[in-house]
Simulated assay, not measured.
Amino acid sequence: MVELEKVRSSNKQVSTVLPPGLVAVYVGATSGIGELAMKALVKHSVQPRVYFVGRSQKAADRITSELKALNSAGEYIFIQADISLITGVDKVCQQIKARETAINLLVQSQGSMDMSTITSEKLRFSISLVHYSRARFIANLLPLIQESTGIRRVVSVLAGTKEGNVHVDDIQGWNIPLMSMRGHLATLVTLTMAHFAEHAPTVSFVHDFPGHVRSNFGREMKGVLKALGKVYQVVSPLFSTPGEEVGERHLFYSTSNRYPARSRNPNVVVPLPIGVPVAKGFDGKLGSGVYSVDGGGDECGPSVVALLGDLCQKGTVEEVWKDVAGEFIRITGVEAI
Rank of each mutant, 00 (worst) to 15 (best):
E198L: 05
K97H: 07
V324M: 10
T87F: 03
A60W: 13
G74K: 12
A24L: 06
N71Q: 10
F209Q: 11
V206R: 08
S31P: 04
D283Y: 06
G183L: 05
L251H: 07
T202C: 00
G326K: 06
R62P: 02
V50K: 12
V17K: 13
V92R: 15
S15N: 09
V89T: 13
V268H: 00
V166L: 15
S133F: 05
F205T: 06
F196R: 01
N175K: 15
T119Y: 04
A194Q: 11
F328R: 01
N216R: 15
A81S: 15
V155M: 08
I329R: 00
K39F: 01
V166Q: 09
I83P: 11
C300M: 08
V224S: 13
T117H: 08
L67E: 09
G34C: 05
S256H: 08
V305T: 12
V246L: 03
V324G: 00
T16F: 13
F328E: 00
G296E: 09
N175T: 15
V27N: 05
R153W: 01
T119D: 11
A102E: 10
V231I: 14
S148F: 02
Q108R: 09
R249W: 09
I63H: 10
G229W: 13
D90E: 15
I274E: 14
G326V: 02
L144G: 00
F52W: 07
A135Q: 05
P48K: 08
A325N: 06
F217E: 06
V168K: 07
G150A: 00
N165V: 10
P277A: 04
V206I: 13
I77F: 08
I79G: 06
V270C: 01
E198H: 04
L142I: 04
G289M: 01
T332G: 03
M179I: 13
L123E: 14
K43R: 15
L251K: 08
E319F: 03
N165A: 12
I145W: 00
G34E: 05
G333L: 04
G333N: 08
Q110K: 11
V53K: 09
V14A: 07
K58W: 09
N267E: 01
Y253A: 02
K12C: 06
W321L: 03
A135T: 03
A325I: 07
V154N: 03
R134W: 01
H44N: 12
V166M: 04
K322D: 10
S31R: 11
G289Q: 01
S128F: 04
L70M: 07
Q80R: 15
L4Y: 13
L185I: 15
K322G: 05
E220F: 15
P271N: 12
I96K: 14
E244A: 10
L106W: 02
T190R: 05
L158C: 08
Q13L: 08
D294K: 10
